[in-house]
Design a protein around this nucleic acid. Structure first.
Lengths: 235, 235
DNA sequence: CGTTTGCTTGACAGGACTCAACGGATGTGG
DNA sequence: CCACATCCGTTGAGTCCTGTCAAGCAAACG
């Protein structure tokens, strides 16, 4: 982790259009910079830890982050993924609880830290902002409900197919249709809520069935309709 | 479902102290009544349905409600329980989505319906209110994360123990330590994310081990510490 | 009082996890 | 730049948990 000497400015941020700050008029957005500190993390480093007390929120400027909880056996469960423009750590701050999860970087990641006091003053100044945060929380709550139903009702095979599609939605594909994230087999299994070995077996099944092609850590999606069918994804 | 001729007044509501409206000063709380409609539901009736478009939010005046999603096989998964003072249906309204779940009454239940326009005008008038909604959503998001980890990592036995404790927290106990909710075996299994038969077997195991006593639909908790241990509940 | 719904038990099959072993990749330090 | 160590990915074997199917009985309900 490295504290950056000069801070990024929200006005310049490429990810602003997809962030919760996107409704704030351009001439007021400098207000968000007040009190801000920027950090750089390497792959594997953590932004915050389960059990600690939140002091503010982190907005991802570049990079990819996994948010996970550690279960009673010490096994991890990824509950959310985030990329540039996404907010992390706001959940616990706003509910007034300690962090219930750890945020760890999947890539080299730069984040802007907005302290609690500044966030609260922003809420007071920009009434649309608390609305946007609320929307965000409510949207994620819906996503969480979906995940709950899937974990409770779908087979490992179905969950794996769905997970691959979710990764596509979240991080997109490279030119050759590979998922644009670097995740270990263990992280994939943690996402799908299964054992690493089961995850590997299902992936190789998918490859034999022509749905995907494995190329080291890279996963190329070859037949999305087939993945949708095996994942029984609605909509 | 019965539309009530006269509406309840928030100022008189016994559940107001534990609702999201509890920060609004008493002399301003009548504002919440504006545009309100009150309904009465019998056990088994639904307040809203998955797929429909939200027009407002429902605040429970008396009664108990389950919020559940229907999975691809038509199997239900309860994602949340609510009681008097709790808000239902706000998630979808505020994220601007259709209902992702159905709310169904476990008891005779009376609710106050606050239309969307009125809620928005309340947000504008009472800045603390949007803050309270946000807190609520963020808190539930934490609960959802807990549920996700449990479903992914715990055994049916462990989840059942945890569920019984959760029901105790949510609805409390009668004088003789029975859970103060009426849930069928099928609803219990839907809560724990398991099959009805598995649910029944685990309950009868728990009874033989002296943790609980079954008396028809009533479940008497006899050893809470033992339940905590078998559920591996943290905190 | 018949019909339907819910509860319970048994038998069975199969999915998914655990344990163990091995080769390959990755990374580190001398 | 090489040797070593560790981590990661993969495969096989075995077990057990958990879901499904079927049937009987009790309870609720109109």
């Amino acid at each position: 982790m490295k504290k950056l000497a000069d801070t990024f400015h929200c006005a310049d941020c490429k990810a602003r259009h997809r962030s919760v700050f996107n409704q704030i008029p351009l001439d007021a957005v400098d207000e968000v910079d007040v009190g801000k500190t920027c950090f750089q993390f390497k792959r594997g480093e953590s932004i915050f830890y389960e059990g600690h007390t939140p002091q503010g929120v982190y907005c991802i400027e570049t990079g990819k982050v996994k948010i996970y909880r550690t279960g009673p056996d010490g096994k991890d469960q990824i509950v959310r993924l985030a990329r540039e423009g996404d907010m992390v750590g706001y959940r616990s701050l706003l509910s007034g609880e300690k962090y219930s999860s750890t945020a760890s970087c999947l890539d080299e990641t730069t984040v802007c830290f907005v302290p609690k006091t500044q966030l609260m003053s922003l809420f007071a100044q920009q009434s649309c902002l608390s609305m946007r945060f609320m929307q965000q929380a409510c949207h994620e709550l819906g996503e969480a409900g979906k995940l709950i139903t899937n974990l409770a009702q779908k087979s490992v095979r179905e969950r794996m197919a769905e997970m691959l599609l979710m990764l596509k939605e979240t991080f997109g594909l490279t030119e050759d249709n590979a998922l644009d994230v670097r995740l270990s087999r263990e992280e994939l299994s943690t996402l799908a809520g299964t054992a690493t070995e089961s995850c590997i077996r299902v992936l190789s099944d998918f490859q034999q069935e022509g749905m995907i092609r494995l190329d080291g850590k890279r996963i190329v999606l070859q037949s999305i309709p087939q993945l949708v069918r095996t994942g029984r994804v609605e909509e």
